[in-house]
Every structure is written in structure tokens, then in C-alpha cells.
Design a protein around this nucleic acid. Structure first.
Lengths: 227, 227
DNA sequence: GAGTGGTCTAGACCACTGC
DNA sequence: CAGTGGTCTAGACCACTCA
């Protein structure tokens, strides 16, 4: 059953009369299928079935920001999980080219970088890095650890950048070893990469958010007009 | 470079003065990221990069249908690849529950099923299965092998179902062995699943399309209003 | 047959967990 | 501290590829 502990490697070796690496590999099979999770110093446990979070584009509606909810909070309330954010780091730096292009920055412009990890019921499900032009964010709550009710987007609107629309670029791939660790993914679990750009009503890109989601935990929903 | 052969395990052991299992594990990291592919008896090779196709939601604009282009044709023209469709199968059947729900069919309603595979420059990149209620499609060009200029959506509009909008549900996972064969994927390459539902102006769902895309070949672009 | 990756045994030290 | 999984060395046999 979910949460149950598997026999330890030592027990498996004894019981099946195999070498440790053989027992480990059997466990590795289960891990790569995502059926069990290893915790160092504790044991190997049968995975909790992954609850799927449906992310509708509705999560960026202004009324949510006005109600003091950031996007992850909207999903938490809707899906009924307990949200948490950790590994928060805020800095000012020169952005990667990919980001620079999307923000239409010249060669010189720095950005405020907000990196964090999102957890649902204690389980890491997403990492996100936001980039806001320093010319917009400097001295605002966007550089504070806690951006306040409604998150970055609410603060951007208070700074006079009324949001008009977002674009999201969605792709999927296997995670790097680092990413796998940070999202506590087992082998063989892919990630979705969502690169979101926020535009204000003047058409200026005011934020780019680079997110990495544990693929099994998410379904993204989008609405497309037939025009 | 792509296609290049990595040093063999024996060479790595000698060069870095490590045990074989250590060299193997380093290679395993790269394999799980899909960056290299191991072939028994031959060696380990750098994966071929797949050309990325950006799929903007714009591909469903009515003007394209009126110009006689289906969505895949729009992308082909924009990206400059040669499109091809094969493995086409058309039938009438009782749909899976997942589809039945989205089409809001009663227990009895059959659907026309159009299954096909898309190739770009000869390389399989996507499989798709469309489901249209038989009550709509029966006797129309939708059941023909060639649906004609503008594809299914153009025919649906001619049948009086003017399209209003689509929803797309995007997820990612590892392919099954069958799916891997059909898309000619190597080990460790994930797929994106896009389930699209088309609604007419009366709010009725008139088609569901279940697509499977080779993840490395695609970036999906969506536009989200801030409202 | 030489070279390759796939799999296995046997044993070591380490880092982390929880009592 | 004992028990756990993480990582490493050292060596073996096998299946497969290719000249």
C-alpha cells in the first residue's frame, strides 16, 4: 500500500541470496517507474499516487490578484492542497540571452531574479525563476522576500504596469541530475518547461517566468479562440 | 557533435582511473537526460537534436481554413518542412470514456474515429486520433480518407457547426513501447499528450483530438488574457 | 575474435535518519 | 549508536556488433 516501507537492501540480499547491487537494481526498476521513493537513512517507500493538478489559464485572472491570491495559491485553493514555497533567492543580475530577448532588454539592462520552489502538501512539484527588469522592480516589494498579497503580478499592476496578456511556451524533456534532485524526481520521470512572458497594456514585456514542473503532477489547460 | 561516439567504458576507466560501475553511472546520467543513446555491442552515441516546431495557437485561425490549410499544413508552411500524413485509419466505434465525457455523449452515441500519423521531412513527429460524433459526421467528407482543403474543422463549419473555441489539455509522460515504435523514439525520450476539444458557437463540443507528440520536436505556444 | 554494453558478485566507506 | 540508502572499487560472465 501507499506509504509502506519496502524490505531494506540488506534484507533483500539475505532473503533472495543476491548481491547488494542486484537488489539495488531491482529497486531501481521500481524507482524509474515512479512506484517507490527512496529516502536516505530511512528506507524505500511505496509512492503516494500523484495527485494531478489541472492548471487552467484562468489562474491568472485579475480577480484572483485582487483577492490577494497568487497563481499557485489559486490552484491550492481549487485543488485542496497545502501550498508552500521554499528555497527562495532574490538577486539582481544580468539575465541569460533567452530571457533578455523576451524582455527586449538592451545589452546593459539588469533584471531582478526571484528563484523559488513550490511544494504541494510538502512535496516539491515545481521550481520557478522570475525575471523582472531592474528598471521596473528596483526599490519595489518585488525585491522583498515576501512580495505580498497577489504576488509579483499584483505589485506590477500597482507600479502602473496594468497586465494585458501572457504568453506561455510549453515543452517537455528529461530533467538534468540537478533538476531531478531539486524536484525529488525518480529516474525516468520527465518535466514540463513553461516559459511565461507577461505583457502590460502598452505591449511591453514586464516579466518572464521560467518554470519547471514535475510532469506527472500536472495537466495544463488552455483556451484557444477559433477567430 | 550529434551522432558522435562516446569513449567506451574501458577507455573511461583508464583515462579517469575509476571503476567500471562509476564510468557506467556517469553515462547513465546522460542517458536518463536523453542526451546520449547506448547501443549494445556498438557504443554510446550523442543523440540527434530534433528540430523544434513552434505550435502557436494561431494555427487554428479561421483564415487558415479558408485558405485551405489544416493546422499541420500551417506549421509546415511557417517552419518550412515537408508535411506528410500516413497510417490513416477511419472507422466508426464507441469511444473511450475519456472522449465520451468530453463530447458529452450519452451511453449510446458512436463516433467517427480518424487515426493518423504526421511526418515532417519524413520523420514521424506526431500521432493523432480525432473523434467526431457520428450524428454530426456520418455521410459527410469527415468519413472520407481525404477530408479536403482546411481539414476536419473546415468541414465541420460547412456542416453548420461554426467553431467558437478550443480547449487544449497538455501533459507529458514517457511513451509506451508501442508509442515509442510508432514515433521512432529512442529510449529516454518523453512525449507530450495534447487533448484538444473543439466547441461550436452553441457551446457544443463537436470534436476531440488526442495527439501524441515527440517532446523534443515541439514547443507549444499559448496566449492567455490577463482579464 | 576483439570490442562493446548489460548484468552480476563481493566488499568498502560515507551521509543521513532516528532511537 | 545501529540501520538505512548513496557511492565507490575490483572483477566476472554474458549478449551483441562488426570487421
Amino acid at each position: 500500500m501507499a506509504g509502506d516501507k519496502l524490505p531494506s537492501e540488506a534484507q533483500l540480499m539475505k532473503h533472495y541470496e543476491v548481491a547488494r547491487m542486484t537488489a539495488r537494481q531491482a529497486i531501481q526498476e521500481l524507482r524509474s517507474e515512479g512506484r517507490v521513493v527512496a529516502e536516505q537513512g530511512r528506507g524505500v517507500f511505496v509512492s503516494q499516487p500523484v495527485q494531478v493538478r489541472r492548471l487552467a489559464s484562468e489562474r491568472f485572472a485579475r480577480r484572483h490578484r485582487e483577492a490577494g491570491l497568487a497563481a499557485f495559491g489559486v490552484e491550492a485553493e481549487k485543488t485542496g492542497f497545502t501550498p508552500r514555497v521554499d528555497q527562495l533567492e532574490v538577486s539582481t543580475a544580468s539575465p541569460p540571452d533567452e530571457i533578455r530577448d523576451r524582455l527586449r532588454l538592451g545589452d546593459g539592462g539588469d533584471v531582478v531574479v526571484r528563484s523559488r520552489r513550490y511544494l504541494a502538501d510538502g512535496q516539491p512539484v515545481e521550481t520557478a525563476v522570475s525575471y523582472v527588469p531592474a528598471s521596473i522592480a528596483a526599490g519595489s516589494p518585488i525585491v522583498a522576500d515576501d512580495t505580498g498579497p497577489g504576488g509579483i503580478y499584483a505589485r506590477l499592476e500597482e507600479l502602473g504596469h496594468e497586465l494585458d496578456h501572457f504568453t506561455e511556451e510549453v515543452s517537455a524533456r528529461m530533467p538534468t541530475a540537478d533538476e531531478r534532485r531539486r524536484l525529488q524526481l525518480t529516474d525516468g520521470v520527465p518535466v514540463m518547461v513553461v516559459l511565461r512572458t507577461a505583457y502590460d497594456t502598452t505591449g511591453r514585456p514586464v516579466e518572464v517566468c521560467d518554470t519547471l514542473k514535475a510532469a506527472p503532477a500536472y495537466v495544463l489547460e488552455y483556451d484557444i479562440p477559433a477567430r
